[in-house]
């Protein structure tokens, strides 16, 4: 079933001279099992939107249904919602606070009212999932490296065993390998646990490589919704709202403009290399080199 968002709006400081419409009549669905990328320039409403999905913010108007039930309905169990819709904030490592990693990860399950052995089991499972081996469990979270801290923080949300995991820029500030590791981890978790993932990102390359569907936000509305290939074919519209296509798209456009008859909608390096190599005959340097391996 998943989440159904029906005509929601959100106004900050409603009723004052400072009021700002952060969300403007959004209607969409997040069905079970999708890997969705959410992109938009800073201030486009992404963070407001995701905070609404697990009930941290309440819509000024409109409705959100989780598995068919209105999350703002009378008597709706918000605590259960937050266990089912996990939200990993930006720089989640800033929220680590316990004396050791294991206790920190147990905090969420403890709040759900699980007994000691159940929450320990969950924490251990979550830490194994994020690839933090047992030797780190008794360490202070503050002695871990940046990438490890971030994994520990993600484990804290995973230990709640959410059905839907929302990650707000989980790779900000990480080096390229750290970036690949975190995103690879998210993809594995999705496949292993059959989760729904909503990834908020400023990296067009990352969303192009990992997600099945992209939502583009601008001025509190969903401007585009489609597969990466569909969305990234709207290059000029994306640029007009502070975004871009993945770099490969620009590189292929430049090569096409230079006379190589390649498709310009390639999104990743592998795809672009294959496309260029399929036009070997049209590459002057290749003929001179005589290499037709």
């Amino acid at each position: 079933m998943g989440l159904k968002i029906e005509d929601i709006t959100y106004t900050y400081e409603s009723g004052t001279a400072m009021s700002v419409n952060a969300l403007n009549h959004i209607t969409t669905e997040i069905p079970d099992g999708q890997f969705i990328g959410l992109i938009g320039h800073t201030g486009s409403g992404k963070s407001t939107f995701v905070q609404m999905l697990n009930g941290l913010l309440k819509a000024s108007s409109g409705h959100i249904y989780y598995n068919g039930e209105d999350i703002d309905g009378d008597g709706y169990d918000k605590k259960a919602l937050r266990a089912n819709v996990g939200l990993v904030f930006q720089y989640p490592e800033n929220q680590l606070f316990e004396a050791d990693v294991l206790t920190d990860v147990e905090f969420g399950p403890k709040n759900l009212g699980l007994n000691e052995s159940a929450r320990k089991a969950r924490a251990e499972k979550a830490l194994n999932l994020v690839g933090l081996s047992e030797k780190y469990w008794k360490a202070s979270p503050f002695d871990l490296s940046g990438g490890q801290k971030r994994r520990a923080a993600i484990a804290g949300v995973l230990a709640m065993e959410p059905k839907i995991l929302i990650l707000d820029e989980p790779t900000a500030g990480l080096d390229p390998r750290g970036r690949d590791e975190i995103l690879g981890l998210v993809r594995d978790m999705k496949n292993q646990l059959d989760m729904t993932i909503l990834l908020v990102s400023h990296s067009m390359e990352d969303v192009a490589e990992y997600v099945d569907r992209i939502l583009v936000m601008n001025a509190g509305q969903i401007m585009l919704d489609g597969t990466p290939r569909e969305v990234f074919s709207h290059v000029s519209e994306l640029e007009a709202v502070g975004l871009a296509a993945p770099q490969m798209t620009y590189i292929m456009r430049d090569l096409a403009a230079a006379g190589l008859p390649v498709r310009t909608d390639c999104l990743t390096v592998e795809e672009a290399a294959a496309e260029i190599l399929s036009h070997r005959d049209a590459i002057p340097a290749a003929e001179k080199g005589g290499s037709h391996a």
Partner: peptide, 21 residues
């Protein structure tokens, strides 16, 4: 633990596939 620009990586892949780049 780093990378190279995407165009550099693309050229590297094409070179590995035998193009004289």
């Amino acid at each position: 633990h780093l990378d190279v620009p995407q165009v550099t990586l693309l050229a590297h892949e094409l070179r590995k596939a035998g193009l004289p780049i």
